[in-house]
Design a protein around this nucleic acid. Sequence first.
DNA 1: CAGAATCCTATGAGATACTG
DNA 2: CAGTATCTCATAGGATTCTG
Lengths: 140, 140
Amino acid sequence: MGHGELKVTADVPGGLSTKHNERSKWAVDPQCPVRDVLDRIGDKWSTLVLGTLASGPHRFSAVQRAIPDISKRMLTQTLRDLERDGLIARTVFPTKPPSVEYRLTPLGETILEPLTVLVQWADRSRAAIKNARQAYDAAS
Amino acid sequence: MGHGELKVTADVPGGLSTKHNERSKWAVDPQCPVRDVLDRIGDKWSTLVLGTLASGPHRFSAVQRAIPDISKRMLTQTLRDLERDGLIARTVFPTKPPSVEYRLTPLGETILEPLTVLVQWADRSRAAIKNARQAYDAAS
DNA sequence: CAGAATCCTATGAGATACTG
DNA sequence: CAGTATCTCATAGGATTCTG
């Protein structure tokens, strides 16, 4: 008890992994889904960009306006990585000056729900975490 | 259409955020929940440690065995950060040699479900992402 | 406008050695 | 056993300048 009622353990006995692993060695696999997903969205900007595009297609400069403190360099790189992974699509309109539109692909839209679940957790837990930090820092 | 049926937009019109923000400026707030959560679990090891402790309390060396390629330095630091945020609890047994046990707190257990949702997405999407990468790299 | 190129720095993280 | 203390390196990421 104490851990038996965890929803996660009902489906994934070894912890957070989902299958194709025996027992608790899931963290060993360098291609385990945990590492896989975090390498993808664990960087500083990917989720912000995905969240921005969640409300519809944006041009390069529009994304940058939505995330004011991202540099052009990191925005370009983040967009490229997401495009390479098939999460967003890039469309160039050969106008003068050129205009480029970014939008979520169908695959990219499927990540919004998992991200939303995570963000909602963060929102609900913010106060508790803040308190925990203050208690920890006060005790140290 | 195209974005109107997104589940995420039903609850969170501005994108991934959940509330207390007007329109699409959610990414501007440095304390926005997206950045908040990613600063917490977006590092290389936190989720692996949380996933390991999901199956029950572990001693320091047991966590290290579960995640073979983490260094003692990073394991210590990751455990400290998670403890500070109130997600895990540290219990010292004054035996000789000393033994220390780590376990999820009630708060820490609440993050397992969001993480599981994300991991399951990664698992389901792995093939699609792999294909997208190959197509992108072939076209470049 | 939408980048590409270059330079630079801060930090994440590994390796190793030491200790109560 | 469960850390701490250094040292070192790779890379994420910022600032700036240039261009089709």
